[in-house]
Design a protein around this nucleic acid. Structure first.
Length: 754
DNA sequence: AATTGTGTAGTTTTT
DNA sequence: CTACACAATT
């Protein structure tokens, strides 16, 4: 306890009764929580009675790891909300009308499901976009409004035409899910919440089982999560919640900041502890953060105190346009690294919308600054991965409609839309799952002979897979890939995209192999499927984030929560972007306050140096508009730096860069250049599969050079023309015999070896 | 069944 | 500007 502050110590040593820990940014919250768990166990609480809930897998992983390092033997259940609910639901599926082998739909499946349901209801997808309807349904679920409740409410008090539509779609969508023996993400929470409220004896036993419950980031809980936590803390209200209302940035997803604000009313004998000592940032940075957040009205007053030095003043960099902004940041970062004392990974760039990355990426590349973007297509969202996983899902849950429809004709088996529709309709009438229906395809009316045999062959194949499912997910996976010849058309293909897809499939097999060796129970298929839909790729990305020494990190402000960096840039602090125009449109003060909290989160990530940027003009969505100053600028204490005189890199310097690059490329013997011996990583997937790909400066193409284009494959540069941004390259491609001319700066061409 | 055209919408996204 | 869904082709 010696290494803790007074309030940290109080929180750690609290055992029985409700506890609210209001933890400011950088106040050592995670440390307090893990130490408290250890303390509970040391004080005689059986580990099996402790349940710690987080939002992200990463947080859960970290917490579990840290608890284990203090108490190696203790088996405390540390889990995310969704995983916890998935497990409970597995056990008690029948209570909500599901089978225990239910599958979890991801957002993609959800969308397709929504589209089909709406088509069946004859709703115009142009007027009522499935996306929006899905959003309405998700909101309802987060607010604990079931389909029945929604319909009832709508009938009682007629709403607008959107509600009328949702009242039609929501129940139909739920029916679709139930028939598929499937749930979506929101259902995991909703079902469990309903289950707990309708089955007192079950709630009772779970309350008793989990006597000590801890919830992290409580300010981000939605109504469903709130109810679940409450239900588990009735007889044994040893509930400890930690969070910071000032960091609540997920209101748009149904999170209720009120949950944490009213904790003391919910549990009148709650102890409240504030962690206000900040161990992360300089005084200057904290003062800015404090000054900004003080403008929010809906909040508990909280001071941020630090013993850290004053540090550099917070800067507002003003650029004339977004191009110069990107360029200016890249140059500053390079200069600071070259001046010594800073590594690339000391820097982070945050922005409100992903669309701002492009210009930044270009500028960083021009300045040879290695970087990674914490975004990109999630691994498990890739089409090829979802296809293969759909086979797995079908083996596990033959009623999974989304999975069935996804792969029944992939690769092509001559089972077109019409045949599929007939079979699905018949399966619905007969009340059998889709594999059973395919097995008995000859009984389905109006099916062509060819379709019948194709369906039967398909069913036979899935049946074989089920038999082969002897615990090893890897074996099952490889037999699926072989039997379906799924990757056949890509093998030996020159098209980069297809090679990538091949690699992704391979990566999935590796993941399965890994899973097999770590979890060796007979329910491994279930576990693997759960893992693949509840685990996000960024979880793996963040690991490499910590120990890669060599890259600047770019991410959205939302993604930045919980992280810290010595030097931080927050770009585009402008009206319309931050606050985002959609937050200002309704003129809802709550939304503006959330935008302010978002900036607050960004600011408090910085340890030593913080710069905000704004521009005079910004080209966005193909339009070039004058910028209006963000109201937040006046609320932050900062020093304005005029960078409007910044010029783009002068001609001579560009030329010099050009020449040195050419030289280096020759030295490298045609190999892709790697700067400072650090590979430049682009996407999360690259990080995940460890593929180190060098990114090249596009201007440096020369005649005779071998290049690769993601679409056209390998080719040779025949001519080059022009200079600077106007420089063009003409390439003769091998495979297709095509000759194409590209703008060197814009094309995705990459030099390759041999 | 794959290719090409057309329209349209466009934050943030822990699971 | 650009990604995506869907329609209309061939």
């Amino acid at each position: 306890m010696d290494d803790l502050t007074t309030s940290q110590r109080q929180a750690v040593s609290h055992i029985d009764g409700p506890l609210l820990v209001l933890a400011g940014p950088g106040s050592g919250k995670t440390r307090v929580v893990t130490r408290r768990i250890a303390h509970l166990v040391e004080s005689g609480v059986p580990p099996s009675q402790i349940l710690a809930i987080t939002f992200t897998n990463k947080a859960a992983g970290e917490m579990a790891e840290r608890v284990e390092s203090i108490l190696p033997a203790a088996r405390v259940w540390v889990s995310t909300f969704h995983r916890f609910c998935a497990r409970l639901l597995r056990k008690h599926a029948s209570v909500v009308g599901l089978e225990s082998n239910y599958t979890i739909l991801d957002t993609g499946d959800q969308k397709t499901a929504m589209r089909r349901v709406m088509r069946d209801l004859d709703l115009d997808p142009v007027h009522y976009s499935p996306d929006r309807i899905a959003w309405h349904i998700s909101t309802a679920k987060n607010d604990l409004v079931t389909a029945e409740m929604f319909v009832r409410r709508f009938e009682e008090q007629i709403g607008d035409h959107w509600q009328a539509t949702v009242a039609k779609v929501y129940p139909a969508y739920q029916k679709w899910l139930l028939e598929s023996n499937a749930v979506d993400f929101d259902d995991l929470l909703l079902h469990v919440a309903v289950m707990l409220s309708e089955h007192e004896e079950l709630r009772n036993s779970l309350d008793e089982r989990f006597r000590y419950v801890l919830v992290d980031e409580y300010q981000d809980t939605n109504i469903a999560q709130y109810q679940i936590v409450r239900a588990l803390s009735q007889q044994y209200p040893n509930l400890c919640v930690t969070g910071d209302p000032d960091q609540s940035i997920y209101g748009w997803r149904g999170a209720r900041i009120a949950n944490i604000l009213r904790f003391e009313q919910d549990y009148p004998d709650a102890r409240v502890i504030r962690l206000e000592d900040n161990f992360r940032s300089t005084q200057a940075i904290l003062r800015s953060a404090d000054a900004l957040i003080a403008h929010n009205t809906q909040r508990k007053d909280k001071q941020l105190i630090t013993q850290n030095p004053e540090g550099d003043p917070v800067q507002l960099l003003r650029f004339s346009d977004s191009h110069l902004e990107a360029d200016g940041i890249a140059r500053r970062i390079r200069e600071m690294v070259e001046a010594g004392g800073r590594n690339w990974n000391d820097f982070a760039i945050f922005y409100r919308v992903n669309a701002l990355t492009r210009q930044l990426e270009n500028a960083l590349m021009r300045h040879r600054v290695p970087f990674q973007v914490a975004a990109g297509v999630a691994f498990y969202d890739r089409a090829e991965i979802k296809d293969i996983l759909s086979y797995l899902r079908l083996v596990y849950n033959p009623a999974d409609r989304a999975a069935f429809l996804r792969v029944v004709n992939k690769p092509l088996r001559g089972l077109g839309k019409t045949s599929q529709d007939r079979l699905v309709a018949w399966a619905g009438r007969e009340g059998v799952d889709f594999i059973e229906a395919a097995r008995r395809a000859q009984e389905v009316p109006k099916l062509s002979k060819r379709a019948v045999s194709a369906f039967r062959k398909f069913a036979e194949m899935i049946d074989d897979f089920s038999l082969a499912d002897a615990g090893s997910v890897e074996n099952l996976l490889t037999s699926i890939i072989e039997r379906t010849a799924y990757t056949k058309p890509w093998e030996g293909s020159p098209v980069e995209k297809e090679q990538q897809q091949l690699a992704n499939v391979q990566e999935l097999v590796t993941a399965a192999k890994q899973f097999d060796t770590t979890f060796t129970d007979e329910t491994s298929l279930e576990g693997f499927l759960e893992q693949t839909c509840l685990v996000n790729e960024t979880d793996s990305l963040d690991d490499s984030l910590d120990d890669t020494s060599g890259q600047v990190t770019m991410m959205t402000l939302h993604a930045a929560k919980g992280l810290e960096f010595p030097v931080v840039y927050i770009v585009g602090v402008e009206e319309g972007l931050l606050p985002h125009e959609r937050a200002t449109r309704e003129n809802d003060p709550n939304e503006i306050e959330e935008e302010r909290r978002l900036l607050f989160v960004g600011i408090t990530r910085a340890q030593e140096k913080l710069s905000l940027t704004e521009t005079g003009r910004r080209s966005f969505r193909g339009r070039d508009l004058m910028t209006i100053r963000s109201p937040f600028i006046a609320e932050v204490e900062c020093e304005t730096v005029d960078c409007t005189d910044d010029a783009v890199m002068p001609e001579w310097q560009q030329q010099q860069l050009q020449e040195s690059l050419t030289q280096r490329r020759e030295d490298a013997g045609g190999q892709p250049l790697q700067f400072d011996n650090k590979p430049l990583l682009m996407t999360g997937a690259d990080l995940l599969n460890g593929e180190k790909k060098g990114i090249d400066i596009p201007q440096g193409f020369r005649q005779g050079m071998l290049v690769r284009h993601p679409r056209y494959g390998r080719g040779t540069v025949t001519t080059t023309d022009g200079h600077g941004p106007r420089r063009t390259v003409t390439v003769q491609f091998e495979e297709s015999d095509l000759t194409k001319t590209f703008h060197a700066a814009k094309s995705p061409l990459q030099p390759i070896g041999t």
